[in-house]
């Protein structure tokens, strides 16, 4: 059953399996320019990352939904060094941005999930668990968050 919730963007393409679902996710983020989660059309349970079936009601009717503009920080990790070690490798295009922070954010519109976003700049010093942040989908760096002042 198609949901009439205005947050819904379109149904997920499950037919190409796990990697196809990831490709579909990235395509949906690029074309809609919003943070995205997956939501079950039948029971409304949200997931990030997406899965091939609803783990709560087992429905295969799953859709991409917009996570809106703002969220609350669940946790975060600041990367201080651009040197790789055996246990860490920094994505190539982020090396010049060190220090940067990976921020795991519960969107206000879909608070049962956390999505993964990037924070750069001096605002990182103010970042705390529980901080209010605003989403910004960029062409070059993907999903960013900025502290809401």
């Amino acid at each position: 059953m198609q949901s009439t919730d205005p947050l819904v963007l379109r149904q997920c393409d499950l037919q190409r399996g796990v990697q196809g679902l990831a490709d579909d996710f990235n395509a949906a983020v690029r074309s809609n320019r919003v943070p995205i989660a997956q939501r079950c059309d039948d029971c409304g349970t949200a997931q990030f990352p997406p899965m091939l079936s609803c783990p709560v009601c087992r429905s295969q009717e799953l859709s991409w939904v917009s996570c809106g503009n703002t969220g609350t920080v669940g946790t975060f990790v600041t990367v201080h060094t651009s040197e790789a070690t055996p246990s860490m490798s920094i994505p190539r295009r982020l090396r010049a941005l060190v220090p940067y922070t990976s921020v795991y954010v519960a969107p206000d519109a879909v608070p049962s999930v956390r999505v993964a976003a990037l924070m750069i700049g001096p605002q990182q010093a103010q970042l705390r668990v529980g901080s209010a942040v605003a989403f910004d989908v960029t062409d070059d760096l993907g999903l960013l968050v900025n502290i809401v002042v």
Partner: peptide, 16 residues
């Protein structure tokens, strides 16, 4: 690959 597919763009570096 879910770690890479969903966390890499936000700078995830590994198990640490």
């Amino acid at each position: 690959l879910d770690g890479s597919n969903y966390l890499r763009s936000s700078g995830w570096t590994g198990y640490l």
